[in-house]
């Protein structure tokens, strides 16, 4: 059985994230890392394998991004994934959802070709930079596989998968038959840290690099210049003007708070 985990390399959300002059995200000047939310996807893939003792399961991590994105793939290998695929091509820079999902889908197909099958594609619930939460659904659309998204609990037996998810007004149980595209939330269980052994082992694990040409994607189909969405401008939000801060002494805080709310007509 083959599992593919999609992981994204993102600028550190605690750093000062910014845009380039061409209005794409600065992915080089700001420190990057494996999107924290994709660690949950790696974790669930590894648990899926561990629960199926005796089955031959290969976990391949897939990342699409600049040279440095290989760090995201490495971290996943250190956590315990078996192989990595990094799609890197100048032409991909500035891609929107439509183009990103196309490249990911073609890469999954390529992995299917080399490994013989892809039974499960695992994604995070959102990247921590774009925060679209749309790529897994689009990947499912492109691959023609059922989408089983936003799982907080994942269970499986044979080729049956059952998940629990929080919907707008309800908690749902959803069932599907492999192969599927799965996305998991940060409620699905803490991700493991790479062990020393894992870090050493990762150095010897296979890491494949593909260009768009390797995937059979025409460079004219992706990237900033052909994106189907176009950013017109990006402006830093003006810093909020410093508010009034009072220190509570014997109930004065509650008085001041209620006074403020009343002055703003909230009461």
């Amino acid at each position: 059985m083959n599992i593919v985990v999609c992981v994204k390399y993102v600028p550190d959300s605690t750093a000062d994230r910014r845009f380039e002059d061409d209005l794409t995200v600065d992915r080089v000047g700001v420190d990057g890392l494996l999107s924290e939310l994709d660690e949950y996807a790696v974790e669930q893939a590894l648990q899926f394998r561990e629960k199926r003792d005796g089955e031959d399961i290969t976990v391949t991590v897939l990342t699409v991004g600049p040279e440095k994105a290989v760090d995201a793939a490495r971290k996943a290998l250190q956590m315990g994934a078996d192989k990595a695929v990094h799609v890197v091509d100048e032409a991909i820079a500035g891609s929107d959802y439509v183009a990103t999902s196309l490249v990911l889908a073609k890469a999954v197909e390529k992995i299917r070709e080399t490994e013989g099958s892809v039974d499960l594609v695992v994604c995070g619930m959102a990247s921590t930079d774009g925060v679209g939460s749309v790529v897994p659904a689009m990947l499912s659309e492109r691959l023609g596989l059922p989408q089983v998204t936003l799982a907080s609990v994942v269970e499986s037996q044979g080729d049956q998968v059952r998940i629990k998810r929080d919907n707008e007004g309800s908690t749902e149980v959803v069932g599907a038959t492999l192969p599927i595209v799965l996305s998991v939330t940060d409620q699905s269980g803490e991700a493991r840290y790479p062990s020393f052994k894992g870090i050493m082992a990762a150095k010897k694990k296979p890491l494949e690099t593909y260009s768009l040409a390797d995937l059979g994607v025409d460079a004219g189909q992706v990237g900033l210049s052909v994106a189907w969405t176009q950013v017109e401008d990006a402006a830093a939000r003006p810093p909020r003007t410093a508010g009034e801060i009072v220190t509570d002494e014997d109930g004065s805080g509650a008085d001041a708070l209620v006074g403020f709310l009343a002055s703003k007509k909230f009461i």
């Binding site: 508010g243 009034e244 009072v246 509570d248 805080g253 509650a254 708070l257 403020f260 009343a262 009461i267």
Partner: peptide
Amino acid sequence: IFELVDFGVVGDLHAVLPAATEKVNERK
């Protein structure tokens, strides 16, 4: 969080909120 606020109270929420709740209810 105080970097963001229009208004902030430095204090224990277990004291401030019940007192504020009472005052709001009185006003109403």
